[in-house]
């Protein structure tokens, strides 16, 4: 089954209107409810930038909930240890889990890092903005792909 992300709707708007939305998300396709196969930026990310974005409290802040092989004292255990995650999951699966893990588990505590709909009372200055940009998602995917066992 091939399902298009909600964002595809924007492609149907007149070109002039879609240009007006600076914060609009890149469209993406979800495959088998488990994968996003194409890079959101059309190119591979930078793993070194991804490692930084994953640790940064204002960006991915993945360490709040995950242990990762990064030198940082404080790491959380709300989610699984991500050591070796690339041996368990392939690129397209990692991308979906970053973009919107709720497609797999609606109850999960893990935020959807690339979604702007269906949220409550988002802080005014963050309204309409995803937690991470498409480029940051790709950087983190590239970094996660280096975590092989």
């Amino acid at each position: 089954m091939r399902r298009l992300g909600a964002i595809i709707v924007s492609a149907m708007l007149p070109v002039a209107a879609s240009v007006a939305f600076a914060d609009e998300l890149v469209k993406f396709a979800v495959v088998d409810d488990n994968e996003i196969r194409e890079s959101l930026t059309g190119k591979p990310g930078n793993p070194e930038e991804g490692r930084k974005a994953a640790a940064n409290r204002g960006l991915g802040n993945c360490l709040a909930c995950h242990v990762m092989p990064i030198k940082e004292d404080l790491q959380g255990d709300v989610g699984p240890d991500l050591k070796g995650v690339a041996s368990r999951l392939k690129e397209s699966e990692l991308r979906l889990r970053l973009v919107n893990p709720k497609l797999l588990n609606p109850q999960t505590a893990m935020p959807a890092f690339y979604r702007t709909d269906g949220l409550n009372r988002v802080r005014k200055d963050m309204e309409g903005k995803p937690i991470l940009t498409a480029a940051q998602i790709e950087d983190i995917v590239a970094y996660l792909l280096t975590l092989k066992e």
């Binding site: 404080l74 959380g76 505590a109 409550n120």
Partner: peptide
């Protein structure tokens, strides 16, 4: 139980589902 904010978390996500776990330096 209502999820709030850009991070889309409810009180229960932190204080019920993850009671006893660590969120970075915080013991939930």
């Amino acid at each position: 139980y209502m999820r709030h904010g850009q991070l889309d978390l409810s009180c229960a996500n932190c204080h019920e589902d993850n009671d006893g776990k660590w969120m970075r330096g915080d013991h939930l």
